[in-house]
Amino acid sequence: MGTEGLAHVVRLCGINKVYENGVTTHVLHDIDLEIAAGEFVTVQGASGSGKSTLLNIIGLLDTASCGELWVAAREVRGLSEDERALTRRDFLGFIFQSHYLLPEFTVLENALMPLRIRGGGAEARRRERVIGLLEEVGLGDRLGFRPRELSGGQQQRVAIVRALANEPVLVLADEPTGNLDQKTGRLVFELMLRLKEVSGTAFLMVSHDERLARETDRVVQLVDGRIADDREQASLRGN
């Protein structure tokens, strides 16, 4: 993917988000943010502070009302819906609170899905790597299982591998441990940290969990749609 050459995988400059449906709601105010390659950033904030909106805008699922956004050194303003879909496909990975695995496909097929969407032989080329990732997260013996045959933690682990299948520059994780019990959530989080190290992919995670946030490279605090605090936790950074 050539992430080494990129100083920043994502850069936001003066991003605002205003919803106008009868009432004008200003959700995000002048957000400036850069995420470096391989960085693990946590976004924290109270409910309604704009965390998910920020994540959706960076993930090209939502559009900013104004401001500039670069994803993988590419200005995304003015891209069509399909162009944004292709940018997501090629550069981004997603982990949601629910796993959203497709019930009719096996564990391996679900993990390979982003590559299947891409087509052009990507699935065949990266199959071994994806199997390696599934083994890494302890699902090497579950490749042929259906999602419903797995526990909640196992399902979320498949979702994490799926997010990494297309070797994205950034994985966006919205409360990835929100639906799991504390112990399982902890295991899943540790897995994300490990995979970050293995793959060199940057992570942007929204989480309420203070203890998990403390273990990431950087914590961005949102208050009423503004960045109130952005601190690097240098002591924990590997580099």
């Binding site: 993930g59 699922l61 399909d82 879909a85 292709l86 940018t87 997501r88 496909r89 090629d90 981004l92 997603f94 949601f96 959203y100 497709l102 899905m113 982003p114 969407i117 891409r118 799926r162 297309n166």
Partner: peptide, 8 residues
């Protein structure tokens, strides 16, 4: 989800 993953 498929669209989020980049399906057109």
């Amino acid at each position: 989800i498929l669209k989020a993953m980049g399906a057109t």
